[in-house]
Structures are given as structure tokens and as C-alpha cells.
Computed example of a mutant assay.
Amino acid sequence: MRVLLATRNAGKIEELRQILAEAAPSVELVGLDAVPEYPETPETELTFAGNALLKARDGVKHTGLATVADDSGLAVDALNGMPGVLSARWAGSKKDDAANNALLLDQLADLDESRRAAKFVCAAAIVYPDGRELVVHGEMPGRVGREPKGANGFGYDPLFTPDGFDRTSAELSAAEKNAISHRGKAFRELASKI
């Protein structure tokens, strides 16, 4: 079965390929760079699930392939769940990991460790050409550190330490992260239903 993963994020494509290769080995996963380019709908929904469905529906409409999409981000308790669906654009419209991390650190600078709880959240959707849709969710609880650490991962990974670990997500191996990540949980559940 050939499935489109509606993203151009190389880190996300690799991460999700690994997860789906284990959970659904019969699925051939391709990214947006492997299909003819089409106009992508902006992520305008107020929920992770809404944005994931927008992207998955677009993929089916333009390629005819069953399409998987996710929307994920960091929800910080002290910021009332923000940056949330705005995680990739937290410091402005340009998706700039370094700027997003710097802004988050600035916003949390005065908070002690007890007030730095956060979680990564993921909604993953699949939309089939026949109109069937499925959305699943995954979460990875933890806390936001005071400085970036590690070179693996992307986004807020260098700042985020998952519960039960003394290393950031960016210091974990791909296998360690995939085993506990919000995206890993959501995509393993989704893969089991494809």
C-alpha cells in the first residue's frame, strides 16, 4: 500500500518512516517531495486534529493516495497550553527553530523548575480516497529546560526533557525517542489501523 505523508520536514519524514516501518511494513511511505507539487492549505484550525485533517484531505484530493498527516506541538502549562498549534510559528511566520526556542526560554525565564511542566502533543490523521477518516492522539509529558542540549531531533527537542529521563529529546537516540514520543505513540496507533 502506498501512502503519502503530507510533510516536507525531512526530520519528521525520517522519524515517521522508522515508526511505520516497524508497525506497518507493507506500507510504502512517500513524502510531498515524491509527488507532483500542489498548493497546500494553510494550517488555520484551532486544534491539532483539525490541522492534521486539513493536510490529509489535501493530499488525497491532489494525489489520489491515502494520506497521513499530523499536527503536533509543545503545550506548556505555565503558558496555558501555548505555543500549541502555533509551535512552528511561535516567534513569527517563518518556521525558525532557534528563534522559537529563544522566545520560549525568554517567556519562561523567571519560572522555577516546578512551573516548567509541558507536553508534546500530536494528532495524526489518515484520509482514504473513499472518504474514510481516522484521527488518533499521542502525548509525551516532560518539562522545559533552561538551555538547549543535544543535536538530535528538531524543533523544541533541545529544550524538552521527557518525564523519566535526565536527557533532552535531542540527546536521545532516534529509537529511544520514537519509543516514547507523542508522534511515535500516535503513529503506532494509526499504523495498527491502516
Results as ranks from 00 to 15, higher is better:
137 H>D: 14
122 C>W: 02
34 A>L: 14
163 D>W: 08
161 T>V: 10
4 L>G: 09
138 G>W: 05
128 Y>R: 14
159 L>T: 00
124 A>H: 07
179 A>V: 04
160 F>N: 01
182 H>S: 01
157 D>G: 03
51 N>C: 09
64 G>Y: 06
113 E>A: 11
159 L>N: 00
174 A>W: 09
117 A>W: 01
179 A>S: 11
43 E>C: 07
16 L>N: 09
87 S>H: 12
68 V>T: 10
129 P>Q: 15
167 R>S: 11
21 A>W: 05
6 A>P: 06
154 F>P: 01
192 S>F: 03
56 A>Y: 02
6 A>V: 03
10 A>W: 00
135 V>P: 08
131 G>M: 08
25 P>D: 04
175 A>K: 11
8 R>A: 10
15 E>K: 06
62 H>I: 13
182 H>F: 02
40 E>N: 05
74 L>M: 04
60 V>G: 06
81 G>K: 09
147 E>N: 01
105 L>H: 07
167 R>P: 04
13 I>D: 04
139 E>A: 10
117 A>T: 15
67 T>N: 01
169 S>H: 14
58 D>L: 00
185 K>P: 06
104 L>A: 04
142 G>H: 01
5 L>E: 06
38 Y>Q: 09
92 G>K: 06
138 G>Y: 07
26 S>W: 14
17 R>G: 12
159 L>A: 00
130 D>V: 10
82 M>V: 08
184 G>L: 01
128 Y>L: 13
119 K>P: 11
186 A>H: 00
29 L>Q: 08
66 A>F: 07
98 A>W: 02
183 R>G: 05
111 L>W: 08
24 A>Y: 12
55 K>S: 01
24 A>I: 09
28 E>C: 06
75 A>H: 03
150 G>S: 10
175 A>I: 13
77 D>P: 03
66 A>C: 07
132 R>N: 14
142 G>Q: 02
189 E>P: 07
28 E>F: 12
64 G>S: 09
139 E>T: 08
120 F>H: 02
163 D>K: 03
127 V>F: 01
171 E>R: 03
103 L>R: 11
104 L>D: 01
9 N>Q: 13
33 D>L: 12
67 T>A: 12
44 T>V: 15
67 T>E: 13
3 V>A: 04
44 T>G: 15
32 L>C: 05
104 L>N: 01
156 Y>Q: 00
24 A>F: 11
